[in-house]
Amino acid sequence: MNRFDYVRPNTVAEAVQALGADPQARFIAGGTNLIDLMKYDVERPGRLIDITRLPLRDITEQDGGYRIGALVTNATVAYDARIKERYPLLSSAILAGASAQLRNAASTGGNLLQRTRCYYFYDTATPCNKREPGTGCGAIGGVNRIHAILGASEHCIATHPSDMAVALAALEAVVQVSGPNGDRSIPLSEFHRLPGDDPAKDTNLAPGEIIVAVDLPAKQFKTNYTYLKLRDRLSYAFALVSVAAALELDGETIRTARLALGGVAHKPWRNPEAEALLQGKPATRETFQAAADLILREAKPQSTNGFKIELARRAIVRGLEQAAAGTPQSQSDKRIQ
């Protein structure tokens, strides 16, 4: 871990100012990913701005939805009675991720900003365009069973590891940010980006900006939802593939469909065409399969992760089945519905 200086602002304005003054500075809140990366010398910030004292710890009702302060911990969100009741998809996704200890520390904003778990990104002995632009991608042709099947580039095949973000994508949450040029809103689906030729950049957050809140829109999907996560052990592992599915049904007919995939791309993966295809169709396996085929039409395997395409196809179908049946995946009962 490199050496750095440490500042602890009390207000968002102070925090933004502290960051703006120093491009090598990083915000720290839960620290669960940043300190991890600093110990590997993947992140070497010159200055840490401890934002844990900022007044961003509330969950408040607004416009029929909720605003979750950026510093609200993952555990607090997941177990909040209002969130559990009204956005069970979000609760479920959060509880599918990490461990109780990590969820107790990790913040809402930090969760969105966590970095890929690509082995090569983490290992400074190997090349990585995300860590050191221009050095190449070690994962291409290497050990890549956990890597992307959608939206990857020749420069980077990393995936975004968050579970929470996948649910937020399906819920069409909006990220509220504050920066030197004022405040702005970024829809969750536009918050993370694909690697393209600039994989070092994970998000569309502008330099100097801080996440202050995540807004949940009014639409809740209380009944027909699921967060289905498939991984290499039954808990405490990142997703090989995960599916956040949320439906509104009119009898057997799909009125609204939201579908986001985790573990398959550099961002939570949504496909508007597939969601449109589901709309107005009967909630049947055939319909779900058609949507899955559409989503995976452009999937591309790496040397050892081809199985993820078929796995994603099946997970989408199952996730939609679970959502349609109102039998969401339990995160403690490991039997899959």
């Binding site: 050496r3 200086d5 500042v7 602890r8 502290a18 090598q24 200055r47 401890d50 004292r53």
Partner: peptide, 15 residues
């Protein structure tokens, strides 16, 4: 600013 440890690299400690 509540706390400021000073410039980067300095082995300044904080109470």
């Amino acid at each position: 600013m509540l706390i400021d440890s000073g410039s980067p690299g300095a082995a300044g400690t904080i109470g």
